[in-house]
Amino acid sequence: MMQQSEWVLKRNCSLSPRQFGMAYLLLCVVTAFWASFFTLNGAPLVMAFAMIELLLVGGAFLHHAIHAADHDRVVLDDRFLMIEYFRAGDVTTVMLERCWVRVSAPRHSGDQLLVQSRDKSACIGSCINGRARKQFARELGVALRSV
């Protein structure tokens, strides 16, 4: 009986959700201060543009927060290669028969790792950089060949 191998491929997020919120709050305070200053000194459109800016930046921050925990989980046992995609709170699972799995290493740094098994295929590694993808392709290939 073979031991199970597992990889978790995830982004490197430099700010915690709390730090991200604090940065946005600081941006709101500074922007509101300067927008109020210019509005009180005769430039009323500055406040409108400042609010539009904060809404757009807030939307971008929200999108980032929703996808900050996205990752791929790859589990290899003696019969199957299981790939779980965690995206914005949803989980999708792909099961491939180990004996038929073929790994196509990424050719360019932006390409994902392609794994195929008979009539199924899956791409892995959208959450990691090109160098880590190539290293994972080598590791997965070695693990698949071991019995």
Rank of each mutant, 00 (worst) to 15 (best):
Q112F: 06
T93R: 15
G89M: 00
F38C: 04
S16D: 06
R131G: 05
L96Q: 02
G59M: 14
S126N: 09
E97H: 07
L40S: 09
R79N: 13
Q116K: 15
C28I: 11
S109M: 12
V74Y: 07
L40E: 05
A88Q: 11
W100F: 15
F61E: 07
G42C: 06
I128K: 05
R87C: 11
G130K: 00
G125P: 02
L40P: 01
D70R: 04
A143D: 02
G59T: 11
L9K: 02
F37K: 08
T39V: 08
W100D: 15
S146H: 12
T92D: 15
A137V: 00
L45C: 10
M82F: 12
G130R: 00
H67K: 07
L144E: 03
G58M: 04
S146L: 14
F38Y: 13
G89Y: 02
F61R: 04
A68H: 01
A122T: 07
G110E: 05
L56I: 06
V142K: 12
L9C: 10
K120T: 06
I128Y: 04
L96E: 00
D119Y: 13
Y24F: 15
R73A: 05
D78R: 10
A43Y: 15
V115C: 03
C123H: 13
C123I: 06
L140W: 02
G110P: 02
H64R: 15
E53G: 07
M95E: 07
